[in-house]
Amino acid sequence: MKILVCMKQVPQKDAPLKLNENGSWIREDVSYEVNEPDAYALEEALRQKEKHGGEVVAITAGPARASQVLREALAKGADRAIHLEDPAFVTLDALNTARAVAAAVKGESFDLVFTGLQSDDYGFAQTGVILAELLGWPHATIIMHIEKNDAGIRVKRELEAGFFQFVQMPLPAVLTIQSGINKLRYATLIGIKQAKNKPLRKVTMAEVQAALGPNLQVLEKLYIPQKTKKTEKLEGPASEVAKKIVEKLRNQARVL
């Protein structure tokens, strides 16, 4: 199976984030990492390839720094990578991001496209589904298991409140992958060495511009959310903090 994995670089989970001067985005001087569900999407693609043969291609859109996620993907076993490289890709809405990805892989024939179920930055949870619609392919979201069969694939979708569902679907298809579908591997030293010789194709904004339109949803302002709850802050030596928490447990929570 030939599988395309869409991956995104996002700020590290516990990185302290600050707004930029005009409140349009965060300050870029933070540490980045692979969006967590995308790492699981890559792992699943590698496992499918190990079972059924084929090729795994990783793609990302973002500035030069984003190539780090592709290098990691190649080191873990992806065969090649595509980098839509331009800082402006970060500002695209989900529809335009999906259009850019579709344009970048035009002419290729994938059996499956994987994305993580959502990103830690925008959190649209849309790009994969939109991509399926643009390609005219069926899709399924929040996937926890994939098995290939004669008619295509049978996937396990996560529903809400602890429910799951199996869905049979034809190929080609787009799947959005849930964290925890598998156990992530680490890149090996040999993998890291080999990655240096694997093809990494760069695609400029100009090459996909014709496929894009203006963002139809406009992010006007980013800001620190207003608190809806009155929160009391507590800091200090552990023993004092512990005493104050007990007070709270007795007087407010009334559980003691």
Binding site: P11, L17, I26, D121, E220, Q226
Partner: peptide, 20 residues
């Protein structure tokens, strides 16, 4: 009409408008 959404895992909120 502006819509408010959470971004960056709830660390920020954003006001978003339709341009269509």
């Amino acid at each position: 009409l502006l819509f408010t959404r959470s971004m960056f895992q709830g660390k920020f909120a954003a006001d978003v408008s339709f341009a269509c």
